[in-house]
Nucleic acid binder design. Structure first.
Length: 576
DNA sequence: GCCGTTTTCGGCCCGACTGTTTTCAGTCG
């Protein structure tokens, strides 16, 4: 069965080739919008088709596209795409991905030189055949050669956490330029997406020329892509692209809004402005040509008579409607967190003792910390057998007696075995305060089997929290190997919880599933899965992801006091 | 191709930079 991402690719490809074909730009955009809608859909589009659900209620999907989705799901192909790929070539998509090459130029390459592969493009560029083409020149040819070389080195999106130190050092560096009065990072970094493709930096200052000169002299800069009057783009040695934009102070808020995006959010906001007789661009909000807002970002929303929308929500997923109705969620903040429910110690594969972890947790003013080591199914991470687990429980009890201000909770990260049973016997499980149950092996079962394995595990009355629920690894492994809406429903029925694992390589649960859990009143445990004291700081990454998932403090398990927590862990008291 | 307090047609967000031009098209965000 096709995943949503796989279905979306069909539409992205149609959009690409339609663009090369010179089709109506709005028709092209409709395909792109549809691809985006499907990609970020919470439920499986294939399931919706098979269940005869009305797909046209999805935004941007009308009768025609609904039919095409159905065709893709039922046949695994799309005749409209095949027709286009016969007219052009399926390989043109690759060329279109090169920066600087858009549909018009690709069409010229195809029609004049019959180029449809990257190899053919490189050959023609080396031979100097490109600069003679209309609209091309020597510089374009050079750029193409450069991009082809860089491409072989690979340039992926980087995780938010990997971008953060780069952003910090850039800001520190920019602050040394005296003419700058304000600096903000915008774009997907500000929206806290799991990964960022580039970094958008916005600056207010009186001397744009000096700012740009300073910017391109940032030592990690490898090459300068563009250097204009008010904007500049560079690529760092790490391959990360930074876009800098300079605006006047009075436009800073409008520009911050514009460059924070997302594009879909901006389009929706500008459409709304249009309806209200306003015009919004990066310089401000205008009524009859006169500026009515621009200095502060919140004024842009106020001009539209709507509540301020936090950056994490700006994805055109209902936030505009909610802001107009003044019914936006009050998003969770790091200070709402009362403790961490998943960490490891040297007793399994951690690097610090329980006592060291406790000291670090106390510094965070936590009320509680749960030690959740691995179980014996995992010899290579020093998983504990039942006897060792009971010994550890006694040890934790002893430490607890000496503690004041913080309570250690007794937990284990229990393996969910292939048949859905848990990796510890009942008499050990019941000695714990709660469990984090995770899958670590047999990761490649088919989707239905994997889903049922988890639900079967939840049938065990000692199952409390599902650890790293989807198994996603940022930039490595998609989290679509389980039917998450079904798992969330199963958790709701059984009084179980889902983890949002805050490890920067996981950030598992994703924003969409957090939101479905919230809608189903299934609480989320934001946990660091720390293996050393420093990793307890991952909590803020988890909170960032939770905010993207519309979560409020009340939607999160570990914002509860210890007493509330213990009541919630008692499944018997809340079972249906 | 979608959509509707302008509902079956006629709109659809908006501006900067580069390179190739000689006033602007193409690309990007």
């Amino acid at each position: 069965m096709l995943t949503n991402s796989e279905i979306a690719i069909f539409f992205e490809k149609v959009a690409n080739l339609l663009e090369i074909d010179g089709a109506n730009p709005f028709r092209i955009r409709a395909y792109r919008l549809a691809a985006d809608t499907i990609k970020t859909l919470a439920h499986s589009a294939a399931d919706m088709v098979n269940d005869n659900e009305n797909i046209t209620r999805l935004p941007g999907i009308g009768k025609d596209l609904a039919g095409q989705i159905s065709e893709i799901v039922k046949t695994g192909a799309l005749s409209r795409l095949e027709t286009l790929e016969q007219k052009f070539s399926p390989e043109l998509h690759q060329i279109l991905k090169l920066p600087g090459l858009g549909p018009k130029k690709v069409r010229v390459l195809y029609e004049k030189l019959n180029i449809c592969t990257l190899g053919a493009l490189q050959e023609a560029a080396v031979q100097g055949k490109l600069q003679a083409l209309p609209g091309f020149g020597a510089k374009t040819e050079q750029h193409i050669l450069q991009e082809l070389t860089l491409r072989s080195q690979g340039k992926a999106r980087v995780s938010w956490a990997a971008a953060e130190p780069i952003v910090k050092s850039l800001i520190t560096y920019l602050e040394t330029e005296a003419s700058i009065t304000e600096i903000a990072v915008a774009g997907s970094f500000r929206r806290r997406k799991e990964t960022v493709g580039d970094i958008d930096v916005l600056v207010a200052g009186q001397n744009p020329t000096a700012v740009i000169a300073h910017f391109v002299a940032f030592s990690p800069v490898e090459r300068v892509l563009a250097r204009g009057q008010t904007k500049s783009s560079v690529v760092l040695q790490s391959g990360l692209q930074i876009d800098l934009r300079i605006v006047a102070r009075d436009s800073f808020g409008a520009a911050l809004h514009y460059f924070t995006g997302s594009q879909r959010h901006n389009i929706a906001i500008r459409k709304l402005a249009h309806k209200k007789g306003l015009r919004i661009n990066e310089y401000g909000a205008f009524k009859n040509g006169q500026p009515i807002a621009g200095r502060h970002e919140k004024d842009i929303y106020a001009a539209l008579d709507m509540a301020f929308i936090e950056p994490e929500l700006r994805e055109d997923r209902g936030e505009i409607k909610a802001a107009l109705a003044k019914r936006l969620p009050e998003l969770i903040n790091p200070q709402d967190i009362c403790g961490d429910l998943h960490c490891h110690t040297i007793d399994s594969d951690g690097f610090n003792t329980i006592e060291e972890m406790v000291r670090a947790a106390k510094k965070k003013k936590y009320q509680y910390l749960a030690v959740s080591n691995h179980t014996w199914g995992h010899p290579y991470v020093h998983g504990l057998d039942p006897e060792e687990t009971l010994t550890l429980i006694k040890k934790i009890d002893q430490i607890n007696q000496k503690l004041d201000g913080l309570t250690l909770l007794k937990s284990m990260e229990v393996d969910i075995l292939e048949d859905g049973s848990l990796d510890l016997p009942e008499q050990v499980l019941k000695a714990l305060d709660f469990t984090v149950c995770s899958i670590h092996a047999e990761l490649n079962l088919d989707r239905t089997k994997q889903t049922e394995r988890i639900i079967r595990a939840m049938d065990n009355p000692y199952f409390t929290i599902l650890g790293h629920p989807s198994g996603q690894l940022i930039n490595q492994k998609a989290g679509d190997k389980v039917d998450m809406p079904r798992i969330i429903e199963a958790a709701r029925q059984r009084g179980c919880f889902l983890e949002l694992n805050a490890n920067p390589d996981r950030l598992d649960l994703n924003d969409t599933y957090c939101r479905i859990a919230k809608e189903n009143k299934v609480l989320i445990a934001i946990s660091t899965d720390a293996h050393r004291i420093g990793q307890l700081d991952y909590m803020r990454l988890g909170v960032g992801q939770a905010r993207r998932g519309w979560l409020e403090a009340n939607d999160v398990l570990n914002t509860r006091s210890l007493e509330q927590l213990k009541r919630l862990f008692n499944r018997g008291s809340q079972q249906m």
